[in-house]
Amino acid sequence: MNKLMRRYVPFAKAGVQSLIIYRLNFIGFVVGGLIYCFVMFYLWRAVFDSNGGGAFLGFSMTDMVVYLFLSNTTSQLIFSDVSNDIGQEIRDGSIVMRLLKPVNTDLSYMFAELGAIVMKLVVLLIPMIVGLEIYRFCTAGVVMFNIVNFLLYLLSAVLAYIISFRVNLCFGFIAFYVKNLWGIGILKNSIIGFLSGSLIPLAFMPDGLRICLEYLPFASMSYTPVMIYMGKYGVYEIIFRIGLQILWAVLLYGLSKLIWFGAIKKLCVQGG
């Protein structure tokens, strides 16, 4: 265990450092997300007004605000850019340096991101939760914060990250075939944004589509944790959803390994 830490902690430190050095890009990213949330906030407010101001498919306006901001924050928290990193490294050949080191390739990528995630937890998630709880207190007049739900949210978010990481790993291998990484990035983000319910709560989608999406791994990436936090799920449903997350994490772990072993044999670095 100790040996493991000694081996991987430097990756995590490097992750934190790169976040600090590129902090302006990070701030830009966060502010961009907030702008999007505000546009959506006004849009939903207009929808609620047009609907007579009452609840909309079981969501009150307060719920909607919590959902919007928390699902955006969750997406940023568990955001994984490993597909892009792998793509770049395959392209310029530097992946060889990673393969030469006596470390597990997946874990070295993961720890670099974990460093950044711990930072985001402190500067992003905690202020957001405090802000949302103050908002809920002001609109409802009672404290609605539930520590059990919050802890379950964290557990579910960890699983969400593992799934997000594995999905990204699979996407990263597309770089073996396509050069437009940037286009793939846009494609990946918009597909995940839609399928994970961070754009539109899955509860609002037509029934058939909703049921399909709820079982796909994408819903596990932000919808599940946020719904748990909001107390929308009962005990059995929480157990079921978290079980589903674990199942997907295991399946995607296998899939990414499978693709990796196939792809690594094809790796051909020119020059280097």
Partner: peptide, 30 residues
């Protein structure tokens, strides 16, 4: 790089389609 062009254009197309799906879903309710 034809494949690159296709990836880029399709990405933006899908990005747009999702924006429209959003409006569509809202209007099924109001």
């Amino acid at each position: 790089y034809r494949a690159d062009f296709l990836t880029g254009a399709i990405s933006f197309l899908i990005d747009q389609a999702i924006g429209i799906a959003f409006i569509f879903i809202i209007f099924t309710q109001i």
